[in-house]
Computed example of a mutant assay.
Amino acid sequence: MCGRFALTLPPEAMVQIFGAAPANDLPEVPNWNICPTNAVHAVLSQEGSRRLVSLRWGFVPLWYTSPSDGPLLINARAETIATKPAFRQAARDRRCLIPASGFYEWTKDEDGRRLPWYIHPQEGEFVAFAGIWQDWSSPEGAAMSTCAIVTTAANEALGHIHHRMPVTVAAPDWALWLGEAGHGAAVLMRPGPEDLLAAHRVDPKVNSNRAEGPELIEPFDG
């Protein structure tokens, strides 16, 4: 799964890298501790143009009467995304890319303490997570745009930390995932290459969703 991540790329860099027009309400970066329900950067493709927008991380199905009307859906499993009622239409028609500099996962020691790891690209400054998005509105008219990160079974390189990992989309496949290059995006929902990501232990202070600062991603030996 993916329950926390970091992004340090400035908006200007994301605009250039993805060839996307920026919205006016983008979240602040850098952010070393992006949590569920936070606003995240996402790249959408609509009517032949890419946009860099802000989405709430936590997909809200259309039948929810409020964002808390059911489970908080921050991840969508690749194995069931095409059939699960909450996600299947978005998986067909509303896919997005969610840039991340890295993400966090946790293991436990023999005493049950949570040990955080930071997982990041071995080369380059970021990866693009596969995502799905949806506009939602309440019966009273409150509206928001929401998203979930697509996950799959972890590859061997990361399986000792967690059994799930985000689906990452390589640059040559961005157009296919966004629906610009026709059909067949389902083939992209697989674990990334074994040498794509590296991991190191980080300070347990990141266990708090209030923790901030670049030290959260620094290697930790304690």
Score class of each variant (00 low, 15 high):
Met1Cys: 10
Arg4Ser: 03
Phe5Arg: 01
Leu7Trp: 00
Pro10His: 01
Ala13His: 02
Met14Ala: 03
Gln16Met: 15
Ile17Pro: 03
Ile17Leu: 10
Ile17Gly: 00
Phe18Gly: 00
Phe18Asp: 02
Leu26Cys: 04
Leu26Glu: 02
Glu28Arg: 13
Pro30His: 02
Asn31Ser: 11
Trp32Tyr: 15
Asn33Gly: 05
Ile34Val: 11
Pro36Gln: 11
Pro36Val: 10
Thr37Lys: 06
Ala39Phe: 06
Ala39Trp: 02
Ala39Thr: 05
Val40Gln: 04
His41Gly: 02
His41Asn: 05
Ala42Met: 04
Ala42Gly: 11
Val43Cys: 11
Val43Trp: 06
Leu44Val: 06
Ser45Lys: 14
Ser45Arg: 15
Gln46Phe: 08
Ser49Trp: 06
Arg50Lys: 04
Arg51His: 07
Leu55Asn: 03
Leu62Met: 12
Leu62Val: 08
Leu62Trp: 06
Tyr64Asp: 07
Thr65Asp: 00
Ser68Tyr: 06
Asp69Asn: 03
Gly70Cys: 03
Ile74Tyr: 00
Ile74Phe: 01
Ile74Gln: 02
Asn75Glu: 13
Ala76Asn: 11
Ala78Val: 11
Ala78Arg: 07
Thr83Asn: 09
Lys84Leu: 15
Pro85Ala: 09
Phe87Asp: 06
Arg88Gln: 14
Gln89Lys: 13
Ala90Ile: 06
Ala90Lys: 05
Ala90Gln: 10
Ala91Val: 05
Arg92Glu: 15
Asp93Asn: 15
Arg94Phe: 04
Arg95Phe: 07
Arg95Thr: 11
Arg95Asp: 09
Leu97Gly: 03
Ile98Arg: 01
Ala100Met: 14
Ala100Glu: 13
Gly102Ser: 02
Asp111Val: 07
Arg113Ser: 14
Arg114Gln: 15
Pro116Trp: 08
Tyr118Lys: 07
His120Pro: 08
His120Met: 10
Gly124Arg: 05
Gly124Met: 07
Phe126Met: 15
Phe129Thr: 07
Ala130Gly: 12
Trp133Pro: 15
Asp135Arg: 10
Ser137Leu: 04
Ser137Pro: 02
Ser138Met: 04
Pro139Phe: 00
Glu140Asp: 14
Met144Cys: 14
Ser145Lys: 13
Thr146Met: 04
Thr146Trp: 00
Thr146Lys: 02
Cys147Trp: 01
Ile149Asp: 08
Val150Ile: 14
Glu156Gly: 12
Ala157Met: 13
Leu158Asp: 03
Leu158Ala: 01
Gly159Gln: 14
Ile161Asn: 01
Arg164Met: 07
Arg164Cys: 08
Arg164Glu: 05
Thr168Asn: 12
Trp174Arg: 08
Leu176Ser: 01
Trp177His: 09
Leu178Thr: 10
Gly179Thr: 08
Ala181His: 06
Gly182Ser: 14
Gly182Cys: 09
Gly182Phe: 09
His183Met: 12
Ala186Gly: 13
Val187Gly: 11
Leu188Tyr: 00
Met189Asn: 06
Arg190Trp: 03
Arg190Ser: 12
Pro191Phe: 05
Pro193His: 03
Asp195His: 04
Ala198Trp: 09
Ala199Asn: 02
Arg201Asp: 10
Asp203Arg: 09
Asp203Tyr: 06
Pro204Trp: 03
Lys205Glu: 12
Val206Leu: 05
Asn207Gly: 10
Asn209Gln: 08
Arg210His: 13
Arg210Val: 12
Leu216Ser: 01
Ile217Met: 03
Glu218Ala: 12
Pro219Glu: 12
Asp221Leu: 15
Gly222Trp: 04
